[in-house]
Design a protein around this nucleic acid. Structure first.
Lengths: 132, 132
DNA sequence: GATGCAGCTTCCAGCCGATGGAAGGTCAAG
DNA sequence: CTTGACCTTCCATCGGCTGGAAGCTGCATC
């Protein structure tokens, strides 16, 4: 299977697939004409990476997950450890964004948003202690 | 004031301050010896940018906000528009991360995390429809 | 005044994770 | 035989820094 079809099946752009190969994440066979040739198994791996990336795993974590994916002897605990670590990261990010939303939301609420120049948002950013 | 002191007061690394100057975000006077020289007003701007960045505004948005900050005639509505746009982005990100947390959390919950190789996380990533 | 060291300067490279584009080879249809 | 889709490689660019090298400056200490 050529890279274009692989891209359609894995929902990854061809550019990205080539990039993943370049960084040694996934390698492909080559056909006689030099074209990359993807097997069903390759497609599985591509989709696997696509899903893992969209769940927020870094490329390096994908590398780990892929090797666990290929290792039929590995303990599920090894996989769970990575996933739990990631879950913690996601929770931290959500907390951070929520605090941020809170602060910015407060600034927006207190701003009249009219034609006058007084603006609590600018004042807040410029360092005056927010009244909250 | 030298860049080091400016960095301490603005809570920005010197590298970052120089970078901001390089990209035309903030420029500094130069002392006779060639050192950058920061006024109190410069420090305000640096802190302003530092806060805006930490609230998730992009460097380009900081550029806009800075010009609004300097413009005493601007309408607060102009500032509010940018902030509201950003608020929407933050909400979208939170929603995205929450969905992600949900999916990954479900996978983690269903994984025993023991020495056996059966692993719903890997299965989930490899494309088997999640049971949820 | 020599020495040492912190702090400043510039410049160049690299990080992540792609993405865009140029220049050129290949293949199947019409 | 030509067109156009698809493939190849290579090199540049994005954002937002960050690190390091090589070389000034400024100030304290001997």
């Amino acid at each position: 299977m050529n890279i274009g079809a692989a891209a359609r099946q894995s929902k990854l752009p061809t550019k990205t697939i080539r990039y993943y190969e370049e960084i040694g994440l996934l390698k492909a066979d080559r056909a006689a004409n030099g074209y990359r040739d993807y097997s069903e198994d390759d497609i599985h791996r591509l989709r696997f990476v696509q899903r893992a990336r969209s769940l927020g795993f870094s490329v390096d974590e994908c590398r780990q997950l892929l090797s666990l994916y290929s290792d039929r002897e590995r303990a599920s605990a090894d996989v769970k450890a990575i996933a739990l670590e990631k879950l913690g990261e996601i929770d931290r990010k959500i907390a951070e964004l929520t605090a941020l939303r809170q602060t910015l939301g407060h600034l927006v609420e207190t701003c009249h948003g009219d034609s006058r120049p007084e603006c609590p948002i600018i004042e807040g950013l410029s360092g005056k202690p927010a009244s909250h």
